[in-house]
């Protein structure tokens, strides 16, 4: 496999995420092969690739929704291992936005947002509600606070999901195809929120097929295929001058 240099580009500072020679299997099936990735604080990385290429699995390994079987993953200074006692501490610092939003349907939008701060951060209820309203304003839907998730549109649900993660004040945000389940007219409202977030300096890893977003926001684009990182480059070079044959094929199919 070919990877361009990445650690050398930003030599200063400790990476916030470090993946070293990581492998993962589902039973016999080798889903992730020798993944190496370093992410610096405030870096924005877009991961793309055909379906089944392991992109979602890779970012799900970063907050240990999936376990890896070989290699190392170090997140925010903690190595993810089998006998890690408080994985919750790591997860509290890593926000995750899912393709299907995964809001809690039995709670109001406000309660969805305050749940984490109240139970994980032990924040007083009133303070948590103020925080929640603050982030609802950032994602531009403060007026929906007392509705249930089922009562708002898909795009609004995804923005609530982003706000829910932000309420934990995470150091890293992972996005797992955040717009693929949305109707076309709702994609933009979600992407706008994500662009704002990127401008604020959040460390982000985004699995997406939205190439426009990748071009405007990403520091690096990673292309994965068959469980490997095939190519990795800064966006202009990546789109204008893809090195690898598989990357060229993929880009020709989606652009």
């Amino acid at each position: 496999m070919k990877t361009t240099q990445s650690a050398e580009e930003k030599p200063n500072g400790q990476p916030i995420i470090e993946i070293i020679e990581m492998h993962k299997w589902y039973d016999e099936f080798h889903v992730l092969k020798d993944i190496n990735l370093q992410v610096q604080p405030q870096e924005k990385i877009v991961v793309c690739g055909p379906s089944g290429s392991g992109k979602s699995t890779m970012i799900r390994c970063i907050n240990r929704l999936e376990e890896h079987q070989r290699g190392k993953i170090i997140v925010n200074g903690t190595e993810l291992t089998r006998d890690l006692k408080n994985i919750e501490k790591v997860r509290a610092e890593v926000g995750m936005v899912f393709q299907h939003f995964n809001l809690f349907p039995h709670l109001t939008i406000l309660d969805n947002l305050t749940l984490g701060p109240i139970w994980v951060r032990k924040m007083p209820k009133k303070e948590a509600e103020e925080l929640a309203m603050h982030y609802l304003e950032i994602v531009r839907i403060p007026e929906q606070a007392n509705k249930y998730p089922g009562q708002v549109s898909g795009g609004q649900q995804q923005r609530v999901a982003i706000a829910r993660s932000l309420c934990m004040k995470p150091k890293i945000m992972l996005f797992d195809e955040p717009t693929s389940a949305l109707d076309p007219e709702m994609i933009k409202e979600v992407l706008d929120v994500m662009v704002d977030l990127a401008k604020e300096g959040m460390t982000m890893i985004v699995v997406t097929h939205e190439m426009g977003f990748a071009k405007t926001v990403a520091d690096r684009v990673i292309f994965m295929d068959f469980g490997e990182i095939v190519e990795e480059n800064e966006p202009n070079a990546f789109f204008d001058n893809p090195q690898h044959e598989r990357t060229q094929l993929f880009l020709s199919q989606i652009l």
Binding site: L65, K89, V94, N102, L115, S165
Partner: peptide, 21 residues
């Protein structure tokens, strides 16, 4: 839905918090 478990876990809830809430 499995997503409910995952969303709860990724917020950093402990097992009992996840189950109860």
């Amino acid at each position: 839905d499995k997503g409910q478990y995952e969303a709860a876990e990724s917020l950093g809830l402990t097992y009992w918090q996840k189950m109860r809430l």
